[in-house]
Design a protein around this nucleic acid. Structure first.
Lengths: 338, 338
DNA sequence: CTGAAAGCGCTAACAT
DNA sequence: ATGTTAGCGCTTTCAG
C-alpha cells in the first residue's frame, strides 16, 4: 500500500494541493472549515508530509546535524538529549552521528550528515583538530563547535567550559585540604579540555608547594586501570587522585578496588564531570561538575541565531562556561580536623 | 554561495546529468575516462548529492528510524551505537528520536520520524503498549519492536531477552547462596521486562522456601532512593536486594550508602544489566548481563530482512535472547563456606 | 554506453 | 482566500 501524497489529501478534501500545504505549513491563512476538512482527510488517510519533497522545493531544511565522539558517554548523551528537546520545541529535527572516537570515521560521518543539507551543525570533534569537512563549511553553513575545541583560531562559534580554571579549582581544593601529592589521571592529552584541566591542576598544586604528576590513560577503561595500577604498584602513593573524565575515574577506582585501596580513607579522589553512579557510593565522589544543560542551551542558541540571521556573518564568538566544585565525601581533610 | 548541483557537475565534466548520477550511484556502468572526468569535476566543485532530491525521485530511502525511551541510559545508547555501526556499514543512515519516557512525546516523535519516510523502524517503546502511530504501520512499513514489549500478540517482529528466566537465574543464585529474604527493587511494573524479571525472581525464591518482596521505585533515582530508604528504615533488612535496572540499582546503593549499610557485608546486591561503574567498586556488583550487542544485531538483521525481502510478508517472528549471570563480589555466601 | 526528457511530492509565485 | 502551474535536484525510462 503506497503512502498517501498531498494530492490524495487534496482530492479527498475537495481542495487544491496548495491549500493542503498551507494548512500544514501555516504559511498562508486558510478558512477554518477548509482547514477542518483537510485535517480530517489527512487523518483518515494517515497522511504524513514528505520531508524530502518539501525540502527540495522550499530550499529550507529544519534540520540540524549533531556530531559527537561517542553516544555511550553520558556526557555527550545528555547534550544530545537536551539538543533534541530544544530542537523539537522550535520545529527543528536533529540528526545525530557518532565518530566512535576515530578520526577516519569522523570524516565519513560528517559527510553523511552533510548530505542531508542541514541548516546548521553542532559538532564535538574527537580531537582538538578541526575536521577538514567542517572547515570547508566556513562560508556555507553555520557551525558551532563544542567541548573538545581549541578556542583560539577556531573559525566558528565555540562553546566550552574554562577547563584550565576547572583544574585550578580542583587543585586549589585539594591543596586546601592539605594534599601535597596529587596524581592526575588524564585520558588523552591531545584533547584540549584534558590538556587544560591537567595543566590547571598541575600549575596550582605546584604553586602551592605540592607535587603533581600527570598520567595519560588513553580512552579504554581496562587499559587505563592497568596503567594506573602499575603506577600505583611502583610509586609512593599520592594522597589524592584527580580523574579527568568519567572513564579515567572508573579506571582509577577499579585499580584502587583491585588493590584494596579505599577512597578517601587511603587516597582521596576528585572526579571531573558528574555521573549518577558517582554519588551512589559509601564515599560519594567530590566532582567538578560541568553545566551540561547550559552547554547544550548555549550551543543551540548560537546556532539558531546564525541560522536565522541568515547571511549576516559576524565574527565567531566563543562562549566559555564554568564548571563548579561539588563537595562530597571522597576527599579527606589532611589538615587539622577530620 | 549556493551548493553545486548535479547539473553543474555535468556541465563541468561535459557529460549529461544521467551520467553523473550513474557514476555516483553505480547503477549503470560508465566508461572509465568519463568516470574520472566526473569525479574530478565533483571534487573541484565540492559536490555533495542532495539526498532529498534523490530520495524523492527514486522512492528509495536508505534510512532507518530508531526510537528509544531515553538517550542518557547507557543501555539504549549502546544499542543505538551498535545500530549506527551496522547501518553505516550497509549504506544506511539512522535517525534517532527519544521519547524521554513520556507517552505523549513518544507519539509526536514517532510522527516526526515517519516524515523522513524511513525504510523501516526499530522501536523501544516506553511502555508495554504498542504506540498507535506504530500500529498504523502494520501494512506499510517494516518494524522491529525491542525490549519493552509484550511479545504475545505483537503484530511486528520482536527482539527481547527472556526476562522471566533472567529473574529466575538471579533468584536461583541468591537462594543457592543461602539468601532467604530478598527485596526486589523494580522501576515500573508496567514495563513488561520489569514485571517479568520481578516475577521470575519472586517465584523462584518463594519456591525455594525463601521470602521475597517487590518494591516499585519509579524511574527517578532520588525518589527511588527515598522509597528504598523508607522501606529499609521500617522493615527487617533483607539479606539481598535485586536491582532490576541501572537506576533502581543506583537508588538502592544510594539508600544503603546513606545508612552506612555495606554491599555484600551487610546486604548482598545483584543488579540487572552491566554498566562500567558496577565493576569499579570495592565490592564489584554481580549482575545479570544482557547481550546488548546481540540485541542490536538481531534487531538490525530482522529489519533488513524485512526491508530487502520487500513485500513478502511472513508472520511476525520473535527472537528471545538470554541474559546471563556474571558473578562478582557483591553477594555473600550465607551457607557453610565463604 | 550515453543523452534527452519526464516526473517524484511538495511549495512559491501568480492568477483568480 | 483559494486554485493553477512551474520547478526544486535528482533518477529513470527510453532513444540513439
Amino acid at each position: 500500500m503506497k503512502k498517501p501524497s498531498i494530492k490524495d489529501v487534496a482530492q479527498h478534501a475537495g481542495v487544491s494541493t496548495a491549500t493542503v500545504s498551507n494548512v500544514f505549513s501555516g504559511r498562508k491563512p486558510v478558512n477554518d472549515d477548509l482547514k477542518d476538512r483537510v485535517r480530517a482527510a489527512a487523518e483518515q488517510l494517515g497522511y504524513q508530509a514528505n520531508r524530502a519533497a518539501s525540502q527540495l522545493r522550499s530550499q529550507r531544511n529544519h534540520v540540524v546535524a549533531v556530531l559527537v565522539p561517542n553516544l555511550t558517554d553520558t556526557f555527550f548523551a545528555k547534550i544530545i538529549s537536551n539538543l533534541e528537546n530544544l530542537a523539537f520545541s522550535q520545529g527543528y529535527d536533529v540528526i545525530v552521528a557518532s565518530s566512535h572516537d576515530r578520526l577516519d570515521v569522523e570524516e565519513s560521518r560528517i559527510k553523511a550528515l552533510l548530505r542531508w543539507q542541514p541548516a546548521g551543525m553542532i559538532a564535538i570533534p574527537c580531537s582538538g583538530e578541526l575536521p577538514a569537512s567542517i572547515a570547508a563549511l566556513k562560508e556555507t553553513s553555520p557551525v558551532v563547535m563544542v567541548d573538545r575545541v581549541s578556542v583560539e583560531g577556531c573559525p566558528f562559534d565555540t562553546v566550552t567550559i574554562d577547563n584550565y580554571q576547572s583544574g585550578v579549582d580542583a587543585g586549589q581544593f585539594l591543596a586546601d585540604q592539605g594534599h601535597q601529592k596529587v596524581l592526575i589521571a588524564a585520558s588523552n592529552l591531545d584533547h584540549p579540555p584534558i590538556q587544560n584541566r591537567a595543566q590547571g591542576c598541575f600549575d596550582t598544586v605546584q604553586k602551592l608547594g605540592g607535587h603533581c604528576e600527570i598520567l595519560a590513560l588513553g580512552s579504554d577503561l581496562d587499559e587505563g586501570a592497568k596503567v594506573v595500577g602499575d603506577w600505583l604498584d611502583n610509586n609512593e602513593p599520592p594522597t589524592a587522585i584527580f580523574g579527568l573524565t568519567n572513564v579515567t575515574t572508573l579506571s582509577v577506582l577499579t585499580a584502587m578496588a583491585d588493590r584494596g585501596i579505599r577512597v578517601c580513607d587511603h587516597i582521596s579522589v576528585v572526579a571531573h564531570d558528574d555521573y549518577a553512579w558517582m554519588s551512589a557510593r559509601s564515599a560519594s565522589l567530590t566532582v567538578m561538575q560541568q553545566p551540561v544543560d547550559d552547554i547544550a542551551k548555549t550551543a543551540w542558541q548560537r546556532l539558531i541565531d546564525r541560522i536565522e540571521s541568515d547571511g549576516v556573518n559576524h565574527a565567531p564568538q566563543s562562549s566559555v562556561l564554568e564548571a563548579h566544585l561539588v563537595k562530597r565525601k571522597s576527599v579527606k581533610n589532611l589538615k587539622g580536623g577530620m
